[in-house]
Design a protein around this nucleic acid. Structure first.
Length: 237
DNA sequence: ATCTCGATAGTCT
DNA sequence: GACTATCGAGATC
C-alpha cells in the first residue's frame, strides 16, 4: 500500500470525510456530497473528481435496490454508513454508491457524475479513449466535451476511476484507497459561479419516477447526458 | 438536438 | 423469463 505522503494529490484532498457525515438520511447526504471530491488510489495511479450529480435512495423506495430487503447483492447497503456500495448492471456496467443512514437502514447515494480533476490520462486509458479522438470530435468546447466523456454518468465514472466489484464494501472513511474529501479550496475547478442546488426526478428508473431525488447545481455543466434536460425544482440549502 | 435500439449478464420472480 | 440506478452508435429531424 502506498504511503499517503507520496501521493500526488493536493493536501486538502487527502482527508476523508468522517463517518458521521454519512450517518444521515440519503436525502440529506446526497446534496451535501455535491462539490466534494472522489479520490481513488490504485496501482495504476490516482484519479480524482469533483462530484457534480447524485441521487438518493432509501429502503422505503420502490426504485431502490434495498426495497425488497437484504440480498447478497445489496448486502453492503444494509451495513454501516460510509462504505462503498458498487453494483454491476446491464451486463457490463458498474455504479458507485456511498452507504448512508444509521447502520442497517438500506440507504445509499448514487454518484452519477464528476468533473475530472486528477489523473485524466489514466481515465482516458481506462475508458479506451485517446486525447486525439476526444479533441478532434469536439467543436465548441473541447475541454468540456472530453471531460464529460470521462465523468458524466455513473458507469462512465466507474470505468474512469477503475471501480468494480473489487471496491464493493470499501470503507470510504480511512483515506487509504477510495474516499471522498471536502473541497474547501478547489479554485479554478469551480467553474460554475452559481451554487444553487436543484432537485429533479432520478434517471433511468421506472418506479417512483416522480420523486425528486436527483441533485445537481443549477448551472453545473458536468452532469450526465441523459440528465441534462430534466425539469428542475429549487432546493433551499 | 433528440430518438431508438442493441449489447450483455447478474438478479429476482 | 423479465427486468435492469447504462452507454454508444446510428437514424432522423
Amino acid at each position: 500500500m502506498q504511503i499517503i505522503a507520496d501521493l500526488d494529490l493536493p493536501l486538502h484532498l487527502r482527508a476523508p470525510i468522517p463517518r458521521s457525515f454519512y450517518e444521515r438520511s440519503s436525502t440529506e447526504v446526497a446534496p451535501d456530497l455535491l462539490d466534494c471530491v472522489l479520490v481513488h488510489v490504485s496501482q495504476e495511479g490516482i484519479t480524482a473528481g469533483r462530484i457534480s450529480e447524485t441521487e438518493a435512495y432509501t429502503q422505503d423506495d420502490e426504485a431502490s435496490h434495498a426495497f425488497r430487503g437484504e440480498t447478497p447483492r445489496n448486502r453492503v447497503m444494509f451495513g454501516a454508513a460510509g462504505h462503498a456500495y458498487v453494483y454491476f448492471t446491464y451486463g457490463m456496467h458498474y455504479c458507485l454508491n456511498a452507504v448512508t443512514g444509521m447502520g442497517g437502514m438500506g440507504e445509499a447515494v448514487l454518484i452519477r457524475a464528476v468533473e475530472p480533476l486528477c489523473g485524466l490520462e489514466l481515465m482516458r486509458t481506462r475508458r479506451g479513449l485517446s486525447v486525439e479522438a476526444a479533441e478532434i470530435r469536439a467543436k465548441g468546447n473541447p475541454t468540456l466535451r472530453s471531460q464529460l466523456a470521462l465523468g458524466a454518468g455513473p458507469a462512465r465514472l466507474c470505468q474512469s476511476f477503475g471501480l468494480s466489484l473489487v471496491q464493493n464494501g470499501t470503507d470510504l472513511t480511512t483515506g487509504d484507497v477510495l474516499w471522498i474529501a471536502r473541497s474547501h479550496i478547489l479554485g479554478a475547478s469551480l467553474t460554475s459561479p452559481i451554487r444553487k442546488i436543484v432537485r429533479t426526478p432520478r434517471i433511468g428508473i421506472s418506479k417512483a419516477a416522480d420523486m425528486l431525488r436527483r441533485y445537481t447545481f443549477a448551472t453545473d455543466p458536468y452532469v450526465s447526458h441523459t440528465g441534462r434536460r430534466k425539469s428542475t425544482t429549487i432546493l433551499e440549502k
